[in-house]
Design a binder for these strands. Sequence first.
DNA 1: AGCGACATGTAAGCGGTTACATGATTCT
DNA 2: AGAATCATGTAACCGCTTACATGTCGCT
Lengths: 196, 196
Amino acid sequence: MPLEHAILSVLNQQPMSGYDLKKEIDQHIGHFWSTTQSHIYKSLRQLEEDGLVSVEEIQQANRPNRKVYSVTGTGRQELEEWLKTPMECDPVREAWLMQVYFAHPLDNEQIATLFEERIQKMKAQLDRYRRNTPRPADIDLLQMENERARELWQMTVDYGTAYLQFQIAWHERALQKIKALPVSHDDRGPNGNQAL
Amino acid sequence: MPLEHAILSVLNQQPMSGYDLKKEIDQHIGHFWSTTQSHIYKSLRQLEEDGLVSVEEIQQANRPNRKVYSVTGTGRQELEEWLKTPMECDPVREAWLMQVYFAHPLDNEQIATLFEERIQKMKAQLDRYRRNTPRPADIDLLQMENERARELWQMTVDYGTAYLQFQIAWHERALQKIKALPVSHDDRGPNGNQAL
DNA sequence: AGCGACATGTAAGCGGTTACATGATTCT
DNA sequence: AGAATCATGTAACCGCTTACATGTCGCT
C-alpha cells in the first residue's frame, strides 16, 4: 500500500514507465523508502486492476516497448484522500531490543560489545546517509518545481539524520548503564554462561 | 525469524506450550514486539522441523492436551550464536514521510493539520505506553530471577518512551517549519489544490 | 445463557524481497 | 570482450496478520 501511494503521487506529477518510476523513487524518497523493480511492476498491475492508473504502450525501435502509466480520475481522488488522512503511528517494534532483553545470560562485557558494535554500525550508516543524500547545492539537479517542494524534501532528509543521531545517543547512554550493571550471579569467571 | 529467536529464548528459561508462550511474550516484550497466536504456532512448527525444539504432548483430562516445547542442544547453540551476533541496523523506512514529501500540493494549513493530528496520536500512544507497561513496583509480580534481568528489561521499556518522545519532538519542530513555509504558488485561495 | 480462559490450529492475504529470465544497445 | 543502460516481467519465498474453526470448563 505505501508503495502504491508513492507511485500514484509520482505519476500525478508526470506520467512515466515502471522503469522510470524506480529511478524517480530511488532519487527522491530513496533515503527513507527503498524499493525494487519487481515490486513496482506488481503494484502497477494492481493499480491498473483497481482503475487508479491507465497504460499507454509506446512502440520503440531497437529497444523494448515502454508502458507509460498515468493517474486516472479515480486515482486522483484516491490520492487526494490519502494525502489528507494522517497516517497511523505504528507501535514500537524493534527486533534488536529482544537481544537486549534476553541478554541476561551474557556477562557485562559481552553485552557491552554488542552495543559497541551496533554503535559503530550506526555511525557508519549515518556517514553513508550524509554522503548519499544530495545536499542543498545539488537540489537544482533534481529539478524541483518550487521552493516548497524543496523544503519538504529537506525535512524528510533531516528526519533521517535526526533519527540516526537519536539511535546513536540512546545506545551510548545504554552502554553506560550496561557497564554499571550488577555482575551476573551466573558468572563463573572466564567460562561463564552456564545458562546457555 | 525474530519471533523464532524470542521463542527460543523464552523456552530456554522454561519449557512451555504455545499458549503459554503467547502470554509470556506479551507480558515481557509486548511493549516492543507484538505477536499473534497463529504466528507462534507456525514458528513452533518451523523450529521443530529444524530440530531446534522438541515437543512433549501432555494428556489432560477435561481440557485440550498441551504440547510442551523445550529447546534442544542444537537450539541452544543457535540461541547462543544469535545472542552474541549484533543485529543489523535497518535503514530508515517511514511510510508517513511519503506524505510529507508528497504534500506540496496541499496548502500550509492542511499540512500543519496533518502534523498536529499525528502529534496528538503520538502523545496518546505515549500515554498508553506509560500506563500499560508495568512500573518498577510491579516488577516483582513478573517474577524476574535477578536484578540484572530487571534492569535489562527496564532498558527496553525506556527505549519506548525515549523513542516516542523523540518522534513527538521532531514533529513539533517540523510543525514550526511547516508554518513558516512559503505559500504555495498553486494556492488560489480557499479553493486551492489545483494540482490534484 | 453467555463470556472468558484454556488449547490447538488452518487458510488466505499483505507488503515486500531475492533470484531469475530475456534481449538489444551503447559505452569503456 | 564485458559492463551498464534500457525495459519488461515471473516465481518463490519471508515474516507477519486477520479471520475462521473447534471444543471444554468455570464463572457470573
